[in-house]
Design a protein around this nucleic acid. Structure first.
Lengths: 202, 202
DNA sequence: GTCTATACTCTGATAGAC
DNA sequence: GTCTATCAGAGTATAGAC
C-alpha cells in the first residue's frame, strides 16, 4: 500500500490523483467526497482505498507533488543573469503555471486560505528559505543600481498575487471581462508593462 | 422567519452571523458545521435554525451583506478628482478593507475559488457593470494623458489581487516574513511606490 | 424562544465474496 | 485487484417539551 510498483498500480494511482486534483481543487478538502473522486476516476470507492489508505492521504500526496513544481520557477531566478530580464522571465513562467495548471493553483489557494494546516510546515521551511535566498539576490541587484529599489520580499509577493489571481479568481476574471477575451494573453502584456516600469532603475 | 424584528431577535441574528463569518471564512461552506457556528455563537444548534431556515440561508445572508461593502471602495473612485491621487486612495481603501475585514475577504475568496455558484450572478451583473463604468473613467484619464496608458480592467484586477493577497494568503505572508513584521504597513508602502511608478504619465 | 431528543442522510472506511 | 454490501460516525434538520 505505501507506493505503487507494477505498471497497473502506477497507472491507477495516477488516474486517482488526476481525479482527486479535479475534485479537491473545485470543492476544497472537506467539500470533496470520495464518491465524486471515484466517479471521475472511473473506479469504485473501495478501490480508491485500496491504492490510498485514506482521503487525507490522497490529498497529502497531491500537495507534496504540487509544492515542488510550485517552487521551481523561483528556483530558476539566476543570480548570474541580467536582472530585469531575469525577473521578467520569472513573471512569465509563473503566469504560464497559472494558465497551464490552474487546478494546482486553486488546490494550493484553498489550502493556504484556510490556514494551511497540511502545508504550513513546508511554507515556513522550504518556501521561506527559498524566498530569503532570492530576496538577497534582488537586494544585491538593487544595491548595484541594476533594478529599482523596492522591498524584495513584497516584490515577490506581488508576482505571486498578480499571476495566481488569474487562476484562482478565474470565474471573476471571465465574468468581468465578458466574452471574446483571452485573459492570460492580456495579463501577459499587462504584467510585462507593469514590471518594466516598476523595475527600471531611476 | 423572514427577517428579525424585535431587539432580541436582531441581536441574536447578528451574533449568529458574526459566528458564521468566523467559521465559514476559516473552513469554507462545506468545511463549516452548524455545531461549530453554534458553539462560537454561544447558542444551541436548533436555536440557530430558529433564526435562519438553513445553513445555506446563513451563508447567503453573509455573502449578500459582504458584496455591498466590497464594491464600496471602487464606487468611491471620483471621475471629477485628480487621477493619480484618486487611484492611490482606492488602493489604500482596498488595503484597509483587507486589513480590517480579512474574514470577509476570505469568505469571498473561498466562494470565487470554487466557481462561485452562490455569487456568480452578482459578479456578472453588479460587479461587472461597476468595473466597466470605472474602467471608462480610467480610459478617459489615459486619453487625456493624466495617467499612463494601461489596460484599465487589468489595472483594477491588479489592485484587487495585490490588496486581497494580504488577507487571503495571510498565513503564507506571515510565514515567509517571519516575526517582527507588520505586513499591512509594509504592503501600504510597497503599493504606494508600485502604483506611483506605474501610473506616472510618461 | 430555547432546549433535549431524535430522525434521516451523507460519507469515510471496512468486510468479505469473487 | 475489484466488486457488493455494510458499518459507524458526523452532520443537517425537525419534533415536541418547557
Amino acid at each position: 500500500m505505501p507506493r505503487p510498483k507494477t505498471r497497473i498500480q502506477q497507472k491507477n494511482s495516477e488516474t486517482i490523483l488526476e481525479a482527486a486534483l479535479e475534485v479537491f481543487s473545485a470543492h476544497g478538502f472537506r467539500g470533496a467526497t470520495l464518491d465524486q473522486i471515484a466517479e471521475v476516476a472511473g473506479l469504485s470507492k473501495p478501490n480508491l482505498l485500496y491504492y490510498f489508505p485514506s482521503k487525507e492521504a490522497i490529498h497529502q500526496t497531491l500537495l507534496a507533488e504540487l509544492l515542488d513544481a510550485w517552487l521551481d520557477p523561483l528556483r530558476g531566478l539566476n543570480p548570474e543573469g541580467d536582472p530585469v530580464p531575469e525577473v521578467m522571465a520569472y513573471v512569465r513562467r509563473k503566469l504560464e503555471l497559472s494558465r497551464d495548471f490552474p487546478r494546482e493553483s486553486r488546490l494550493f489557494a484553498n489550502e493556504v486560505l484556510q490556514g494551511g494546516p497540511r502545508i504550513k510546515a513546508a511554507v515556513e521551511g522550504e518556501l521561506r528559505a527559498l524566498v530569503e535566498d532570492k530576496a538577497a539576490v534582488l537586494r544585491l541587484w538593487m544595491d548595484q543600481g541594476r533594478i529599482a529599489r523596492l522591498d524584495p520580499v513584497h516584490l515577490i509577493f506581488s508576482i505571486w498575487a498578480l499571476t495566481q489571481h488569474y487562476a484562482d479568481f478565474d470565474m471573476q476574471v471571465r465574468a468581468v471581462l465578458g466574452e471574446g477575451h483571452d485573459p492570460y494573453a492580456e495579463a501577459g502584456a499587462f504584467l510585462e508593462t507593469l514590471y518594466a516600469r516598476l523595475l527600471a532603475p531611476s
